[in-house]
Design a protein around this nucleic acid. Structure first.
Lengths: 215, 215
DNA sequence: TCCCATCTGTGACTATTGTCACGGTACGCG
DNA sequence: CGCGTACCGTGACAATAGTCACAGATGGGA
């Protein structure tokens, strides 16, 4: 645990009121997580709200057979309000959060987070807004799975990835297939088609995105 | 708007504290909805939290082309905390709540609901618990769509329906197909297979469920 | 009672997605 | 610089789900 730099927090969470920030500094834990490291898993003992200071997290679902699919990304300034919500069940499927890049997170113990809901209006608003945003994103994911074919889902996936990490998508076809719960060959084929339209260019281990709207 | 029977509310929501119940009686609106009537639609002007007193609601997603899929059911004693969450967007997809049977709902204006979060501990707990439950159910639906074939999804659907409305499932194949965002013929075929295992018996406009666990 | 609207069953065909097999390519490391 | 490992491309085939066409069943009014 390091000394928290108040300015860093302030910059990411300008909407939080002063006294709340003071408490945040005193009561929360800063944690650095490496790329690929697991940040949260539903049903774990420690329940905290997670505030992302830097880096990038992906939140995804994993079933009992190791299948997974991406729910959404968390960017700096976002909170994973989910963690407040998750009961300590040890059931089959789980929600996982993993660092996509080296990240810094702030862990707020659940009891504090709950208390602050009443104590600090700005916290209350922040948590509600977080929920709202995450929920909307989850619904978009849900829609694309329920209503769309794999080709459109791939497009949706790429757009989202571009939004959080830029036009150089450094992923193998296998990784994409995993996050869409599909198979490598199928993704390769679809990507090839996309390349033929001129929307992207394929390279080893990364995809250069030109324009995904033209498709 | 009728005179609210305090005892009815009390029975459905025993976990709420006395002064809160008083306020509920004064400030909320009772509404009767007929079978098939729409109770909520995201993006509508009036934002309220919905408490279900009697009957049964289904909450589902509908996209711009009229496709739909069932998210979950709401039973008496449940709240649709979602309505607090839904911004007034007029986007493509929507969350809808519709009465499956004649129902009575209590509408709590959003600003009160939010205020009570701080004022009444029991309300806070109730809302959080509602979220949690609905969210878990939504995730189950999500799982079944993402990871399972249509046969398993149908089973899951039937089980859930049995849980809320008993072993006589009064639905046409077409209705089931709609709620699973599939087509009638496919559902008919799968149901036929289920009948052959002895799990169900098919009739016109209703399905007699014997045992869905044996499959 | 008879007729029509609705519901159900089924075969044939198509489209999409997943699986298998295999060959080629690029990169990193000794 | 060559060798191995991971990555990518592709054809053939299988499985699942959606579509079309049509026939038969059923039940509720006129």
């Amino acid at each position: 645990m390091e000394i928290l730099d108040k300015e860093v927090i302030l910059k990411q969470f300008p909407q939080l009121e002063q006294p709340l920030l003071e408490e945040l500094l005193k009561q929360s834990t800063l944690k650095e997580v490496e790329e690929g490291e697991e940040v949260m898993r539903t049903g774990q003992y420690i329940k905290s709200t997670i505030l992302l200071l830097s880096g990038l997290l992906k939140v995804y679902r994993e079933d009992d057979e190791g299948n997974e699919f991406l729910m959404y990304y968390l960017e700096p300034g976002n909170a994973c309000a989910l963690s407040m919500m998750c009961t300590a069940r040890t059931e089959k499927s789980q929600i996982m959060a993993k660092a996509v890049a080296k990240s810094e997170v702030l862990l707020v113990p659940s009891h504090l987070s709950e208390m602050w809901l009443g104590k600090y209006k700005s916290w209350h608003n922040f948590v509600i807004a977080s929920y709202r945003q995450r929920f909307e994103e989850l619904l978009q994911t849900l829609d694309s799975i329920a209503f769309k074919g794999l080709d459109e889902r791939l497009l949706f996936y790429l757009k989202r990835h571009v939004k959080v990490s830029g036009k150089e998508v450094r992923l193998s076809h296998q990784q994409i297939a995993d996050e869409l719960n599909s198979s490598r060959e199928v993704i390769s084929r679809l990507l090839k088609k996309l390349e033929q339209t001129g929307a992207i260019t394929l390279h080893r281990n990364y995809i250069e995105v030109h324009d995904l709207e033209i498709v």
